[in-house]
Amino acid sequence: MRVGLFIPCYIDQFYPEVGIATYELLIKLGYDVTAPMSATCCGQPMANSGFEGEAKKVYHHFVDDFAEFDAIVMPSGSCTMHVKEHYTNINQTKDVRHVRTNTYDLVEFLIKHGVKKLPKVELKAKVALHTGCHSLRGLGIGHPSELYGQPTSALRQILNHVKGLEFVDLDRPDECCGFGGTFAVTQEAISVKMGQDKVEDVKRTGAEILVSNDMSCLMHIEGILRKQGEKIKIMHIAQILSPVAEHP
């Protein structure tokens, strides 16, 4: 299967190790992986700000980059949801439809194709989990606490394959961390407060690492942790499944 790897702009620039880990993981799983050099962004920041029209150019660019692949995988549920749900204001060509149907968040992709053949890894650590809201409620990765029935975590389902992890539960596992894209800046006070509350919740559990499938949440949470001088680490789930050097 030919997989097009999309590394969202902020991961490319700020967390290359997450991109690398995702790439290495998909290679280890036996996929034919390409990360197009011309890829940039999914267009979400503009669209969520109300400028869906201005984002069209970016949408076309994205589709041009990725239409050739059987599956498009990205270490970000939020970007995935945007491609799937919101690429509606451009002509629904065969390519656009193909891209929208075959774009996956990494966790979503692993559950669909690869959980059973995950590489054997070990990590002795106490971890708390954070599923990005767009993954949880937008893509249906896991079962949110709002709906009838036991809440479940897709992250947990995957990380159960990792030896040595001790899972701790947040009081509010589904609560939004407050990043929200441009919200982080336009509603700075609430955004930071939400992040601080998330950090408090993590601290209460005694977790050493906060793991998520969405790096944008983690960028925001890390910002707060560092400002507080907290030592708790943040890690994208790909970094646990496929350990690579930090800041290569």
């Binding site: 290359p16 690398i20 006070a189 955004s191 925001h220 890390e222 707060i224 560092r226 800041h247 290569p248």
Partner: peptide, 12 residues
């Protein structure tokens, strides 16, 4: 209210 991420030497 937040620190910025540490800048890596190279992008992905």
């Amino acid at each position: 209210g937040r620190d910025l991420p540490k800048p890596p030497k190279q992008s992905f």
